[in-house]
Write a protein that binds this DNA or RNA. Structure first.
Lengths: 325, 325
DNA sequence: AAAATTAATAACAACGTTGTTATTTTTATG
DNA sequence: CATAAAAATAACAACGTTGTTATTAATTTT
């Protein structure tokens, strides 16, 4: 049997309500008794009973994260970071890999205080009176829950501008396009707009998928473009990894012969063959933002809003100025 | 406010204890009243309060799964399958990606009935009076909790035997070796033993890592072996994928010029460029086994044992008989 | 049709907390 | 040094269930 506040009370010769207050660090109990109770509690190995607490307080201080497509690894780093971000709050996080519906059922059963949903599509999530925050493409629809999204357009603009400033004029984009993946589409469109804005002609290479090898293969096409690009923007960590490898194998120096900048701002960019310059909302920042959003929504019933986070560019060794041949 | 059994009781003109019994389908309540109560409950949208139930019953019917290294995707399919396997039980599953310690804390707070731990190393997990089952390399140590493991040795033996029966005599193994990854080591050793047993000379190619590209690169080495192998055993899904692609690119027909068999028995093997013959414990089976193990351990205090599951070979189109040149 | 038996329902005490109200103890005040 | 005020502690009713025990209603049995 587990030890309860009543056991502590007996041991410490106080009433159990005093124990409760002491454990919650209430100012209503004298410092010395508080200390004694705390000591006794520790000695007895007291562990509060969440169910009991929850029953009276109607709060769990737990947030559920719904991640239905676990097998697409892209988000793993984000999950890890969110999990970490929760550590400095009074909330803890649990994860479900079930379908959104099933997961929501489970979380409702648990009476989590809030949920984070990785929204794959622009499809609406039925909100069942548990505060909810979505991470994903915001689109243009009305919202009934906050959506955290990245400003992909701005990201591409920054990337292009950065390369332009380094002297690059032929900048190619490599990534998935013309599918119904709203996120990928936003990226290409962002690139196209940015190029237009700055007065350059776009040159994009469509890949077949989102994997490493798709980037690896795309380099052949890139090198056959009319004007050979001096810089490439890879649409994701995996894609860019493949591009980098292929360039190396073809004897093209990065960044001397060709500069490479990758979308996705994750720490892993540091540890590629050549540390990669990248653009995107840093994951830790993103995670922090998401966590804050749920907590705020839980605690203050705030209005749902779409937040487009600003990307930042992290300069590493895969980019450099155009060298005169 | 949520509707409780007391609300239902009022509405149905019975006592709340009768409602409780009716909802739990007790034989103590008359069929007609039971039906009425059930109907009223449904109409009112009743959702049982887990915390209250838990408080009196001291059971949550929830199992926690600890998966600290989420970023290594290999296990994702297994997680998905475990999650699915729980659906047909009365338990549900939640997931934590925290470190084993932190996750165990959270789960203890939640008072889960049991835990599944993906044990990375052979390191011991401190068992804190919550029934625990580990999935991972069993090693030779004493156990205080059940460990579910695959019989890697037998797997390799089956694979080699299968290829032998098809006429292959030069069978190469491609995979990570000589690192401190216990699982990978077991695989190579299994291969070596199997070859020896059947009287063939082993030819293995060590990769640098566990990724797709490591397999892709390894093919060059394979083809430079003294006796060119007629069959390759790839050590994992990713590795084998790389091997397959490289063979294709080099114009080597699979399985006509060279047979390929992969470790890992997951459904994805069906959808590679050429559907792959594979060896291993089928994930769904593995998942089922793990789930059964926790449940048994929760419900019957059974003795901890190491269970080595038998792998099975799934024949697809990447393997065939040796063709006389 | 009264007594005994069985079936159906109701009452109520748990479970381990929190938060409010009541009581006691201590300290300050005239 | 009584008395009022403040501080500390204790008592107790929630919270929404389950499971046990008590009560009432419906059947048998004689």
């Amino acid at each position: 049997m587990n030890v309860t506040i009543k056991d502590i009370a007996k041991e410490a010769n106080v009433s159990y309500s005093t124990v409760s207050k002491a454990l919650n660090n209430s100012p209503l109990v004298k410092e010395v008794t508080k200390q004694k109770i705390l000591r006794v509690a520790k000695e007895m190995g007291y562990e509060p009973n969440l169910a009991a607490k929850q029953l009276v307080r109607k709060k769990t201080e737990v947030v559920g994260l719904i991640w239905p497509t676990i097998e697409r690894i892209v988000l793993a780093t984000l999950v890890t970071n969110i999990s970490k971000a929760f550590e400095s709050t009074r909330y803890s996080m649990i994860l479900s890999v079930d379908s959104t519906d099933t997961a929501m059922e489970t979380f409702k059963k648990f009476q989590v205080d809030g949920m984070i949903v990785f929204a794959e599509s622009e499809q609406m999530i039925p909100e069942e009176n548990i505060p909810l925050v979505a991470y994903g493409v915001s689109g243009k629809r009305e919202v009934t829950y906050p959506i955290i999204d990245a400003n992909h357009e701005q990201a591409m603009e920054k990337a292009v501008q950065y390369l332009y400033d380094l002297g690059h004029r032929n900048i190619a984009y490599v990534g998935l396009m013309n599918t119904d993946d709203a996120l990928q589409n936003e990226k290409v469109e962002g690139y196209q707009k940015a190029m237009k804005k700055i007065g350059l002609t776009e040159q994009s290479i469509a890949t077949n998928g989102l994997d490493w090898f798709d980037g690896y293969l795309a380099v052949d096409d890139v090198l056959q473009l009319g004007k050979r690009p001096t810089a490439i923007i890879g649409s994701s960590y995996d894609i860019s990894g493949g591009i980098l490898r292929s360039l190396q194998e073809k004897g093209l120096g990065v960044p001397d012969d060709i500069s490479l900048i990758s979308y996705d701002n994750i720490p892993q960019m540091e540890t590629t063959e050549i540390p990669m310059t990248c653009i995107g909302v840093p994951v830790d920042e993103l995670a922090e933002e998401i966590v804050q959003a749920v907590i705020q929504r839980i605690e203050s019933e705030e209005q749902p809003v779409v937040r487009k986070l600003n990307p930042s560019l992290t300069e590493r060794q895969s980019t450099g100025p155009v060298l005169e041949g």
